[in-house]
Nucleic acid binder design. Structure first.
Length: 462
RNA sequence: UCCUCCUUAGCUCAGUUGGUUAGAGCACAUGACUGUUAAUCAUGGGGUCCCAGGUUCAAGUCCUGGAGGGGGAGCCA
């Protein structure tokens, strides 16, 4: 007999039919003659109620059906006699796949703190919260591929192992097969990476952008969606050492096209969540964040503010707000400044553009004022920077001048420079932090709770 | 990495100016109950007070160092 997913059973009207459901027991309650089992198989946040007439079953099997155990149930699908659910299964056969010793199984029917659940990341997917988060995470990943596919973008697989250390986004993890206890040394005592696996020093990527640009210069519109690694000692609720990033790169787009894309992209994704993850969002709203759905709708329905850096500095300097870090033209904005703009001044998402060139990366297109570059950061309420991007410098002379100014090793990116030498074109792109998007959509507050197995400093279990 | 707070039962926490045998709720076990809804009621078992030193007649409580975790900051997505 074929199993039917609980999501399907709950919306079925096929009363009287014999059905099979399989899943994990959330709770069992009842008395000497009748038991009720709340069964969940992950297909939905909702459980199906299995009604057990105790007289028809071996007492020892029923005793072992505890929270966390796994069972297969065959029975009649019926309209529920009780309140609280419309459909239930009158059990006829129960097979116990796996017990879960009630004395030691760490998940209880009562709520747990998110901190405790992080310590049992191997079991936390079985909770309502993580079930909801992981289903939403999947839906967002799918929506991202769908968004780009619908618009003619190509999914480009950029390398995870990279030989250039000038991707410009922070400290990197080394990739090596050399014996760490006894590495080959060259004449001046340094490690001789010419004898390493790739014949040079290599690391895990911090960004697929540079390769993304190579793809855009051939396919026109591409995006990457892959893991990204940063060896920064960041201990915050917004940073991971291993996270997923989406990086579209589009030939012929200028900074304004880039902003249009970023805004439409984010709004489409949030809209997809509202339309396809209703049950899970309602659960998260009830348990964690009373304004969640309202906030998601607000982002979909309102245009983002677009504001040059220079005007943002003006607003901050004229505001009555006291800041811990003083504001002046040329400084990078602190979290408190970004939060003031997004959460107090405009009360909506803000795209900041045209930052001073000295606080931004070498590849960003230089403006004619000689002072700023065509950068854009999308700032969201609660989570800050969700997207960072720019129009790219396509002029070979300007780009090479900037690279030399910033002492970036040219020999490692000769191939990147050749895109400007042969058939260069204006182009733009950005990076979206996938987990930051999931933070926003789920209303969770710590990024470690929106990825199944988080990697952070001092933490790589599971 | 810096600032700050926290670490007591399986979980969430209380524990007074340092003082007898460290408590509660939930969970768990046993019993009661013929439709429960995080079922309810009764009874019961359960402790390396994060670790290592120190002060003291006496330390869960005070001091020093360390580890782990939360929040804020920086780095960024």
């Amino acid at each position: 007999m074929k199993r039917i997913k609980i999501k399907e059973l709950l919306s079925s009207k096929d009363f009287g039919a014999s059905v099979k459901a399989e899943g994990w027991v959330r709770t069992k309650r009842g008395n000497k003659s009748i038991n009720f089992i709340a069964l969940n198989d992950g297909s939905t946040i909702n459980n199906i109620q299995v009604v057990v007439d105790v007289a028809n079953f071996d007492e020892n099997i029923l005793k072992d059906i505890t929270t966390g155990s796994c069972v297969s149930v065959i029975g009649k699908l019926t309209e529920s006699q009780g309140q609280g659910q419309s459909v239930e299964i009158q059990a006829e056969k129960i097979k116990l796949y796996g017990t879960a010793d009630a004395e030691t199984y760490p998940l209880q029917k009562k709520g747990h703190t998110l901190e405790f659940l992080r310590e049992i990341a191997h079991l936390r997917p079985r909770t309502n919260t993580f079930g909801a988060v992981l289903r939403i995470r999947h839906a967002m990943a799918f929506a991202i591929h769908k968004y780009f596919n619908d618009r003619g973008f190509f999914y480009l697989h950029t390398p995870i192992i990279t030989g250039s250390d000038c991707e410009g986004a922070g400290a990197m993890f080394r990739v090596s097969t050399l014996d760490p206890k006894n590495p080959p040394l060259n004449e001046d005592g340094a490690i001789d990476y010419s004898l390493d696996f790739f014949g040079k020093e290599t690391s895990l990527t911090v960004s697929g952008q540079l390769e993304g640009e190579l793809g855009a210069m051939a396919l026109g519109e591409v995006y990457t969606f892959g893991p990204t690694f940063r060896a920064e000692n960041s201990n915050t609720p917004r940073h991971l050492a291993e996270f997923w990033m989406i990086e579209p790169e589009v030939a012929f787009n200028d900074i304004h096209d880039n902003m249009d894309l970023a805004e439409d992209f984010l709004q489409s994704l949030v809209k997809y969540a509202l339309e396809n993850c209703k049950d899970d969002l309602e659960f998260l709203q009830k348990m964690y964040d009373a304004e969640l759905i309202e906030r998601l709708k607000f982002v979909v329905e309102n245009k983002f503010v677009r504001l040059p850096y220079t005007e943002a500095i003006d607003i901050l300097m004229k505001s009555e707000q006291k800041f811990e870090f003083p504001v002046s033209w040329g400084v990078d904005l602190q979290s408190e400044h970004e939060r003031f703009l997004v959460e107090k001044h405009f009360k909506k998402p803000v795209i900041l553009t045209d930052y001073p060139k000295d606080i931004k990366a070498f590849y960003m297109k230089q403006n004619e004022d000689g002072k700023t570059v065509r950068a854009m950061d999308v700032l969201f309420p609660r989570i800050g920077e969700i997207i960072g991007g720019s129009q790219r410098e396509e002029n070979y002379e300007k780009l090479i001048a900037r690279i030399r100014e910033m002492h970036i090793p040219e020999k490692d990116i000769w191939w990147y420079l050749e895109t400007r030498k042969y058939g260069t074109a204006p182009h733009s792109g950005f990076g979206l932090g996938f987990e930051r998007l999931i933070l926003f959509v789920t209303g969770m507050l710590n990024i470690r709770d929106v990825i199944p197995f988080p990697r952070t400093p001092k933490s790589a279990d599971f």
